[in-house]
Amino acid sequence: MHRFANPARFLRIASALFPWVSVLCALSLAAGLWFALAASPADYQQGDSVRIMYVHVPAAWMGMFCYSAMALFSAVALIWKHPLADLLARATAPIGAAFTFLCLVSGSLWGRPMWGTWWAWDARLTSMLILLFLYLGYMALADAFDDPERGRKSAAILALVGFVNVPVIKWSVDWWNTLHQPASVIKRGGPAIDSSMLLPLLLMAIGFQLYYVVVLILRVRAEIAEAKIRTLRLAAIHAAGGDDSP
């Protein structure tokens, strides 16, 4: 893994992958939308409102996946002090926050007709809301210090501490009585969902996952350029005989 931690090498590999991942992402989302909106049946109980699931469930998966990735990158950044790991964690945060927000709003839009309420303070919904706040706190903290090093370190610790929330989200429907239904795809004994509905769900999930890779590459590219800009500016101050001590 060490070999890929070099920013220059990362940029080379990322640039080679970028067009392929972008095309695959567009294709899977297009196919996913076709099946989700047109070529899949309405539910026998929920009617066409079940189509919200093809946005809501993959968004929820991505919210948890991005947070796990962010915590993992943060751990690597803290333990081995890899600059690239830190950039990856920071680039992941806004993507995860967007998916978590999408999950909450689409869940609310699904809850209104099916449960009769936009929102309930039950375990699954509340822990997902906490996940959104963790993302927002992480992003605020990472930029809150004049010394970027301190901000990065504090944010990485927050990401690690907050990871405890991810298993709570996953098993909240089993540990507490909630309004939210239990898992029906990732569970023991295989998915309890018909293949006509599983197909759009998986296509959308793959599309979202590839979207994550596309935006991650773009954001890490920007972060690496930003770090170089900072270095060049510091060097310019030194060359001009300036004093950059605080």
């Binding site: 939308l33 066409d48 709003v105 839009l109 699904w110 007709p113």
Partner: peptide, 13 residues
Amino acid sequence: SMGGYAFFVWPSY
């Protein structure tokens, strides 16, 4: 019209 659920389905997408 999404079987009457248009108000909930379309805003999600």
